[in-house]
Amino acid sequence: MLEARLEQAELLKKVVDAIKDLVQDCNFDCNDSGVALQAMDNSHVALVSMMLKSEAFSPFRCDRNIALGINLSSLTKVLRCAQNNDILTVKAEDAPDVVNLMFESSDSDRLSEYDIKLMDIDQEHLGIPETEYAATVTMPSPEFQRICRDLSALSESVSIECTKEGVKFACNGDIGSGAVTLRSHSDVENPDQNIKIDLTEPVALTFSLKYLSNFCKASGLAKSVNICLSNEVPLLVEYGLAANSYLRFYLAPKIGD
């Protein structure tokens, strides 16, 4: 059986909020190393990959592999019944029909319990190769969100160009064009504001801003975001979570521009 307790329901609430507009029905694959999720959007343009390691829970128990097929809109309805600071316990039997979510208030005696019916989801699982990216940009997640939002007003796509001078987000639309260039920046007093660019070779790729803006819904999960690029491979946008856990989004590049 599975029994996994999170100190704060907020983590799962935010993860589900960040991905529910991109993917609808997902398997949460549980085993002794933690809870993993991989799902593509309907158009097969983007892929979500989440890992919540067992260390992120306390305690965590999962005796055998269990796939919890859950509709994220149903999960959202139930998670709305939890306060951010509630302790969240997820329970399921070995061959479950339902998953049980229990919310306990940390400062009162309230205990809420919900069951969500599970679905059989036949999901294609993709092998994501280990990639040494040509460029990795680490920047404040709100800054990335703002850039995506600002450029979305002008165009449907953005070119991301990394050189040793910095990273340039540029777009071209009907009303004109825009570009934001960032250079490496180190703020000792406020390290959340740091911008780091690791570059082995220059990269230039074009991506859909609609998808990038969707990924940015995860901005509340981490103060900084890693944006990893190599020519002609999907972009990786990674939000690091506590206990070596992560929420990753992969986006296929636009072709032919």
Binding site: H125, G127, Y250, A252, K254, I255
Partner: peptide
């Protein structure tokens, strides 16, 4: 989605 790459052409079935 003209000109948009597909993620399945980059990642293998596994």
């Amino acid at each position: 989605l003209a000109g948009q790459g597909n993620i399945t052409s980059f990642f293998s079935n596994g």
